[in-house]
Amino acid sequence: MSSERRRDVGDAIFVDEVGIEYGVHGDFRLRSAYQPIFAPHGHFLHPVAVEGLIEPHRAGRPVAPQAFFDSVEATDRLFVETMCRVLHLRNFPNIGVDGLDLFFNYNPLVNDHPGRALAEIRLMSRYLGELGLAPGMLVCEITEQAADDTLLARLAHEMRRDGIRIAIDDFGTGHSTEERVSLLKPDIVKIDGGWFAEFCRHAAAERFFRPLVSSLHDQDARVLVEGIEQPNHLRVALDAGVDLLQGFLLARPALAGTLFKEEPLAVDALLGRDNNVVPLFG
């Protein structure tokens, strides 16, 4: 079954005139976009990773990703999710920067049959080998926490056995709780951007956020805050000692093949701007 799935996905992937691969599903053309993730070092933020995202297009116009995924029939969701991951892996070398990690989304509810889910992970590992990419540079973001705990633990164990790191996404909302952190023992906990933005509205945000970050560090998890859109978000996150940062204040997602700028971002300049986006891509 896995070899059949790989063949089908390959049949839906094409190459454009500049060598960037894209997928086709119905009326949609699917393109990889990558949003940089930064690590603070002194007074600068350095790009250390990217998150693979899908930018759907229809009739030459971009479509909101959620609108596209909501339109996918249940029977096609596994196929589409597989195609998206394959596109991110294949287009990743076009970034042209050594040493970056790649974060990718994984929704276990799309494929909650243990045997097929494990086969999907093995398929991904084979693609890594074909592309000459090391499993250690991959970070799997588990995006839906309503899945069965036993299945999640088994999937996390299988990925770790292959060298892939685990991140819990959307911490602070829904099922993404400290209990789930204790169960899965993720390498990275990703703080939900919407929850964090609301949290930052409180005057004592720094004082209350710092113990949460410290608690996650005590569980050997690195902390990534997404949705950094305002200087105050950045200030609160840095003050709490987070490890990784992502958001429009720092850099927007850019389509595969766009020039990647490696220059670090100055923290003082970011804190002094009023909600301006600092582009990483030219």
Rank of each mutant, 00 (worst) to 15 (best):
L89I: 06
R210I: 05
V189P: 00
G132M: 03
L255K: 10
V97I: 11
R201G: 15
D192F: 04
H233K: 06
R122Q: 09
T82E: 03
L244E: 00
N275F: 11
F248E: 08
D268Q: 15
Q35M: 10
Y34L: 06
A12F: 08
T258Q: 13
Q66N: 11
L212C: 10
I13G: 07
A64M: 12
E21K: 08
C84G: 04
P231I: 06
H43W: 07
P56C: 06
G136Y: 04
T143V: 14
A33E: 10
F69K: 03
D76Q: 13
R210P: 01
A256L: 06
Q35P: 03
D170F: 00
P40H: 10
H233A: 04
D11R: 14
I95D: 00
D162Y: 14
F92L: 08
L238C: 06
R180H: 09
H88F: 15
P62W: 07
F69S: 05
L245P: 01
H25V: 12
E4Y: 12
L128I: 00
D98C: 06
A49P: 03
G136M: 07
V72T: 06
Y22K: 05
R252E: 12
G26I: 02
F104I: 07
L245V: 03
I95P: 00
I20A: 05
V277K: 11
R273F: 07
A204T: 10
D218I: 01
E179V: 13
R126E: 14
S182C: 12
A39K: 09
R126F: 10
F196I: 07
H57P: 01
P56E: 01
R160K: 14
G10P: 04
V267L: 08
T258L: 06
W195Q: 06
I142K: 01
Y127C: 09
F28T: 07
G52Q: 03
R116M: 08
M1Y: 09
A156V: 15
A269E: 13
L259S: 13
N94M: 10
I191R: 00
R122W: 02
F68Q: 02
M124H: 11
R90Q: 13
V72H: 02
Y106F: 15
H57L: 13
G19M: 09
F14N: 05
E4S: 14
L184E: 02
E4A: 12
P40N: 08
E226P: 03
Q35C: 04
A119N: 11
F103P: 02
G174T: 07
A147S: 12
L280C: 14
D162A: 13
G10A: 11
L250P: 01
L255P: 00
R6T: 05
V181G: 07
V18N: 11
D169H: 08
G282A: 15
N105I: 03
V24Y: 05
V9M: 05
